[in-house]
Measured scan of single mutants.
Amino acid sequence: HDVTIHAGDKTIHVHGASEEFLRIIEQAKRDGIHEEELLRLIEELVK
């Protein structure tokens, strides 16, 4: 999957995102996670 995530003034493109990655991001959004926290989460996941 190619994913584009908008968080605040940043746009992150993730190529080859796994289903698990997508679920984590969707869950985080539903939980109302702060955008900066979401960015950190994404950066950890894509290392």
Rank of each mutant, 00 (worst) to 15 (best):
H1T: 14
H1R: 12
H1E: 09
H1D: 08
H1Q: 13
H1K: 13
H1I: 15
D2S: 15
D2M: 15
D2I: 15
V3P: 02
V3D: 03
V3M: 10
V3K: 01
T4H: 09
T4Y: 09
T4A: 06
T4Q: 08
I5L: 09
I5M: 05
I5T: 02
I5P: 02
H6I: 15
H6C: 10
H6R: 03
H6A: 09
A7E: 03
A7C: 12
G8Q: 05
G8P: 03
D9A: 01
D9M: 02
D9H: 04
K10C: 01
K10Y: 12
K10Q: 10
K10G: 05
T11S: 08
T11V: 15
T11K: 04
I12W: 12
I12P: 03
I12A: 04
H13T: 15
H13S: 09
H13G: 02
H13P: 02
V14F: 12
V14N: 01
V14D: 02
V14K: 01
V14M: 08
H15W: 11
H15G: 05
H15T: 14
H15R: 02
H15M: 12
H15F: 11
H15Q: 13
G16I: 10
G16T: 07
G16K: 06
G16P: 04
A17M: 14
A17K: 01
A17T: 06
A17I: 14
A17W: 12
A17E: 02
A17H: 04
A17L: 15
A17S: 04
A17D: 03
S18Q: 05
S18P: 05
S18I: 06
S18K: 04
S18R: 04
S18V: 04
E19V: 11
E19C: 05
E19A: 10
E19M: 09
E19I: 11
E19K: 08
E19L: 12
E19G: 07
E19T: 07
E19F: 07
E20H: 09
E20G: 03
E20S: 08
E20N: 06
E20P: 01
E20V: 05
E20D: 13
F21G: 01
F21N: 02
L22F: 10
L22N: 05
L22G: 02
L22S: 03
L22W: 12
L22A: 06
R23C: 04
R23P: 01
R23L: 14
I24G: 02
I24L: 12
I25M: 05
I25H: 00
I25N: 00
I25P: 00
E26W: 09
E26G: 03
Q27V: 06
Q27Y: 04
Q27P: 00
Q27S: 08
Q27L: 09
Q27H: 05
A28N: 01
A28D: 00
A28V: 04
A28T: 01
A28W: 14
A28K: 03
K29V: 15
K29L: 15
K29W: 12
K29M: 15
K29D: 03
K29P: 00
R30K: 09
R30N: 12
R30C: 01
R30M: 13
R30L: 14
R30A: 15
D31P: 01
D31M: 07
G32D: 04
G32R: 02
G32A: 04
G32C: 02
G32E: 03
G32Y: 03
I33C: 02
I33F: 10
I33L: 13
I33W: 11
I33V: 13
I33D: 01
I33R: 02
I33P: 01
I33A: 11
I33S: 02
I33K: 06
H34A: 15
H34S: 15
H34Q: 14
H34C: 13
E35N: 12
E35A: 14
E35G: 15
E35K: 08
E35M: 13
E36R: 07
E36H: 10
E37V: 08
E37M: 08
E37Y: 06
E37S: 06
E37Q: 10
E37D: 13
L38M: 08
L38N: 00
L38Q: 00
L38V: 02
L38Y: 02
L39A: 08
R40E: 09
R40H: 10
R40I: 10
R40D: 07
R40Y: 08
R40V: 08
L41N: 00
L41F: 07
I42W: 08
I42C: 03
I42Q: 00
I42Y: 05
I42G: 00
E43C: 06
E43G: 05
E43I: 12
E43T: 08
E44Y: 12
E44A: 10
E44T: 07
E44M: 09
E44N: 08
L45K: 01
L45V: 04
L45E: 01
L45P: 00
L45R: 01
L45W: 15
V46S: 08
V46E: 05
V46T: 10
K47W: 12
K47H: 13
K47R: 12
K47Q: 14
K47M: 14
K47A: 14
K47I: 14
K47T: 14
